[in-house]
């Protein structure tokens, strides 16, 4: 189980609560993300999955509870510490959030230009390498609006990975993409994680495909996180909410007794 994992805790949410006006979105949410693992948060739309992600990124502060990243409480740390923490982050936003008035090349080069002292020559080398890794050679001079949704996601991924981050957040990385484009994103994720060995936090509802990539799966339902367990345990969980979610998204688990008896009856 997650608690027994010896790997270092990178992100820890403890009793996080958040309301927007009178609407409570998160209630007593606790989660640990460990170094080098892939944690997936699943759940129906509008359950507050992205809100959890925004808390981890320090874009939102909890009403109650704590969010600790690398041991720092994000609500209490200085702006400088928050900036230092974020230097080891890479984020792929749900709507990609590319800078639409910049070319693809400039989008990927921006973190390097703003955060490092590399020369333009070194920047070009790194950017071109990342673009090639994403299969985007020759598209650097185009603007984000001139390429397809799948390519925009790949540009977003290239930008997120350009500084070799320690933690990468993916907010619905395959939403709006067809099956082959989704598979392409998963393949790139798999390849880049193997190469860069980053910790990944993925918010998704692309079940069951996402299970293959994950070390831990948590379900966001009824304002709470239900379990955070390996995908096999998740699929066999007794928790009625998890069970309901698994049945709804994957269909009933194959059981020879029920399946075959039905088969015989129709014969």
């Amino acid at each position: 189980m997650e608690q027994d994992d010896p790997r270092e805790i990178v992100i820890e949410l403890e009793g996080v609560e958040k309301s927007f006006g009178t609407q409570k979105v998160l209630e007593d949410v606790s989660l640990q993300v460990r170094a080098g693992t892939t944690t997936v948060i699943v759940g129906a739309s509008g359950q507050g999955k992205s809100v959890i992600l925004k808390h981890m990124l320090g874009l939102m502060l909890p009403d109650a509870g704590t969010v600790r990243v690398f041991g720092h409480d994000l609500a209490r740390c200085s702006k400088q510490t928050l900036r230092e923490i974020r230097q080891s982050f890479g984020v792929l936003f749900q709507n990609v959030a590319l800078f639409d008035s910049m070319t693809i090349y400039d989008n990927v080069a921006l973190p390097l230009r703003e955060r490092t002292r590399h020369s333009e020559k070194e920047i070009r080398q790194t950017v071109e390498e990342k673009l090639a890794m994403m299969g985007l050679e020759g598209h650097g001079e185009k603007f984000p609006a001139q390429v397809s949704g799948g390519m925009q996601k790949r540009v977003g991924l290239a930008r997120a990975l350009v500084l070799n981050p320690k933690v990468v957040f993916f907010d619905e990385p395959t939403t709006g993409l067809d099956v082959s484009k989704s598979n392409e994103i998963y393949r790139l994720f798999f390849e880049t994680q193997a190469r860069l060995n980053y910790t990944a936090v993925i918010v998704s509802h692309d079940v069951p495909k996402i299970f293959k990539l994950s070390d831990y799966v948590a379900l966001m339902a009824n304002r709470r996180l239900q379990g955070c367990m390996p995908p096999e345990a998740f699929q066999l969980s007794d928790n009625p909410l998890i069970r309901g979610f698994v049945l709804e998204t994957m269909g009933p688990i194959y059981s020879s007794e029920t399946e075959e008896s039905l088969l015989y009856e129709t014969l």
Binding site: L57, G58, L59, R83, E84, R86, Q87, F89, V91, F93, N95, A97, L98, F99, D100, S101, L110, P111, E114, R115
Partner: peptide, 21 residues
């Protein structure tokens, strides 16, 4: 309008997440 659209399309959040003020 430029800054507003950047706020609306999460580009400002993206900058913050990249540790760019």
């Amino acid at each position: 309008a430029e800054v507003g659209i950047m706020r609306n399309s999460e580009q400002i959040d993206a900058l913050e997440c990249m540790a760019i003020d």
